[in-house]
């Protein structure tokens, strides 16, 4: 199974139309990857779909970078009993 980071990058790439290979953990969704505000909502929905979790929208939308999204999602997965590969 791919790691959380791989899956986050894949979803991000698909949603923003970017090659996942160009996405790095320290990238900000808006500043570095150019996500528009509606795309931020799409990203949240697509992460939920990818991982089968429910995220609080306020908390999720305030996540700034790809790396912190991975941490946030891993935490939510743990809370909601969803198994993921961290490494």
């Amino acid at each position: 199974m791919a790691t959380v980071e791989d899956r986050v990058k894949a979803v991000t790439g698909r949603t923003l139309n970017i090659d996942p290979g160009e996405i790095q953990a320290e990238h900000s969704f808006t500043f570095d990857l150019g996500a528009e505000s509606v795309q931020s909502v799409e990203l949240v929905a697509m992460f939920e779909e990818e991982f089968g979790i429910e995220m609080d929208e306020d908390a999720a939308l305030s996540v700034e970078t790809v790396g912190s999204a991975c941490e946030f999602i891993a935490r939510v997965c743990a809370e909601q009993g969803v198994a993921v590969d961290l490494e």
Binding site: V38, V41, E42, E57, L61
Partner: peptide, 27 residues
Amino acid sequence: MATGEPLPKFIPSFAWFLKGVTTKGFG
């Protein structure tokens, strides 16, 4: 936020309807 297609016949309260689907939106 309409897309040009007719809406689904039921849109729940507090829905953010974006790009043709119901989302959590900005809450």
